[in-house]
Amino acid sequence: MKTHKLFENNSHTWIMFGRDDEKPEQIIDSNQYMVVSKNNALLMDPGGIELFSSMLAAVIKQVPAEKITHLFASHQDPDIISSLGLWDQALPCATLHSPWIWESFIRHFGMESITYDAIADVGGEIKLDNVLLEFIPAHYLHSSGNFNVYDSEAKILMTGDIGAALESIDAPLFVDDFDQHIASMKMFHQRWMPSNSAKNDWVNRVRKLDVEMLCPQHGRIFKGDDVKRFLDWFEALEVGLIEKK
């Protein structure tokens, strides 16, 4: 599992985990993110069961276990949060922030000790020490209850499946040629995302934010001008399509 520091200032750090070369071949590679502030840490989309030991081993190299006080699951998918039953044993005092509509579903992964903080449809926020993180609605992209995490100070938007690309394990961490990258993400967005209006609604919402890095849960991170390129491309893309063979 690779670890990469995306941002650091006096108050907090953003770390990305991914490109796990120990994962079973047939499961999709995923990016996990962590924000570390003075006394707390938030682990975002911590991943599936298959990834748990690699993930915890990578995390524990950065912070002590008791510092991870918050978890975030953008939605209910197994590659996002099926490891919950194991995190529940590792971090019994943590709080999981996730869409309200998925609470009774996500609990099926096993949750005895962790507290569930249900995020309302309109979104919400969390303060890690003095660091404010916002839960930005991204419903129907692709999950019907879905949120991004925005950090206005770091100008980072963690977008879950939006911006995701299906790529090999050795793919670079950042998009280096946007036009070339389209081929890796077009089908994913057309097939997984069900609603053009939800998509455009999200694009309009995100255009109002100051975003320097757009960080999806699969594939590469968009940086600088590629963030705007992605928003333009996504806005123009027709979604909810099944490719005809």
Binding site: L56, I60, K61, A65
Partner: peptide
């Protein structure tokens, strides 16, 4: 049993981590 198995893997993979002892209690 599964959790123990996973923890043992973590101890193996991250034995040099400065924070590895933070898992002792759980």
């Amino acid at each position: 049993d599964n959790a123990i198995k996973h923890f043992n893997l973590v101890f193996e993979k991250a034995h040099k981590s400065p924070f590895i002892n933070s898992l002792d209690k759980v």
